[in-house]
């Protein structure tokens, strides 16, 4: 997108060189309408970018700060760090909420979809870390509606949600690989295995709707705790079973993301394989199977 010429500048230029055309008043009306439209669109594009940037930072922070356990609140210091990003996202959704109501909800859909998808990636990831489940579309919608405030809910399309879930797989892959490198095993649902900062984690989550303790599947004694890989396989299956409308733009995007998504699951399977085969010889800090080399490629999609 190029830089725009200042509006006043363009006007003055024209006015001096073009004497009265009978259609000028009509076009002045159009200009006003189009200017309003472009201003709104630019505002939304900017908000979308800010939401994307903050969501990405939040994802990186969660992995960097060694969230290594599942089904329990994310340690407080991670949350503290993430608060600023949540606030930015919240503010951005509020700032555009009034602009995307009614007729305009779908008018600017493709301008906000980038931000929505990236935020979905973050939201599904956070929710997964805390509950080891996939957040539903309806709950995601109401989360965004809550963030949108009084202007009315910002639209989250089913497509945004699904594409966000595709990206969640990449996030879980990075989470798994890092965890294997640091702890020598895949994160699983049983919290007691980990000596992480369990105590401080409680308070920050007080206002949260999710009742984490009850939902942690590890609570049932009879069941083996699920490891991340089985969850990855489950989402992979769901995504593979999903049928986008043939020939649509959405179908193209799904196809692209499907490829990346499969690679991500493969990567975790391969890493777990080499960890199983050579695990015992693992020196401290050793990364399973070529993580560094391939990481860039995944992060760039």
């Amino acid at each position: 997108m190029g830089y725009k010429r200042s509006r006043d500048e363009a006007m003055v230029e024209v006015k001096t060189e073009q004497p009265a055309s009978p259609y000028i008043p009509m076009f002045e009306g159009f200009r006003k309408e189009l200017d309003e439209h472009h201003d709104r669109r630019e505002k939304i594009i900017k908000a979308s970018r800010d939401i994307t940037a903050s969501s990405k930072k939040m994802q990186v922070a969660s992995i960097k700060h060694r969230v290594r356990s599942l089904g329990q609140p994310v340690p407080q210091f991670v949350n503290k760090n993430n608060t600023q990003y949540w606030e930015t996202i919240d503010k951005q959704y509020k700032s555009i909420a009034a602009d995307v109501q009614g007729l305009n909800a779908y008018r600017y859909e493709r301008n906000i979809t980038g931000g929505n998808q990236e935020f979905m990636e973050s939201l599904t990831f956070q929710h997964y870390l805390e509950t080891q489940t996939l957040i539903s579309y309806d709950e995601s919608k109401s989360r965004i509606a809550a963030m949108s405030g009084e202007g009315g809910p910002v639209l989250l399309s089913p497509e945004d949600f699904i594409l966000g879930v595709f990206d969640l797989i990449g996030e879980l892959m990075r989470f798994s690989i890092t965890s294997m490198a640091m702890n020598g095993k895949l994160p699983a649902g049983k919290p007691k295995k980990y000596k992480n900062e369990k105590k401080d984690a409680e308070d920050e989550q007080a206002g949260d709707k999710m009742d984490v303790d009850e939902e942690a599947p590890a609570a049932s004694e009879t069941q083996q705790p699920r490891i991340v890989l089985s969850d990855l396989r489950e989402i992979r299956l769901r995504l593979e079973m999903f049928e986008p409308p043939p020939g649509s733009k959405f179908a193209d995007e799904v196809e692209k993301k499907m490829r990346v998504m499969r690679e991500c699951v493969d990567k975790v399977e391969k890493a777990l394989y080499s960890l199983t085969v050579r695990g015992k010889e693992r020196p401290k800090g050793w990364m399973p199977e070529a993580t560094e080399g391939r990481r860039a490629e995944v992060e760039s999609y």
């Binding site: 080891q132 539903s136 049928e243």
Partner: peptide, 25 residues
């Protein structure tokens, strides 16, 4: 969510599929 044993509540994707199918129709 009670009936859910794995990570994904099957209803999530069932609903999404029917929304998308409806649009296509």
């Amino acid at each position: 969510m009670a009936a859910q044993s794995g990570m994904v509540d099957p209803a999530i994707f069932k609903d999404l599929q029917s929304m998308v199918d409806q649009d296509a129709a």
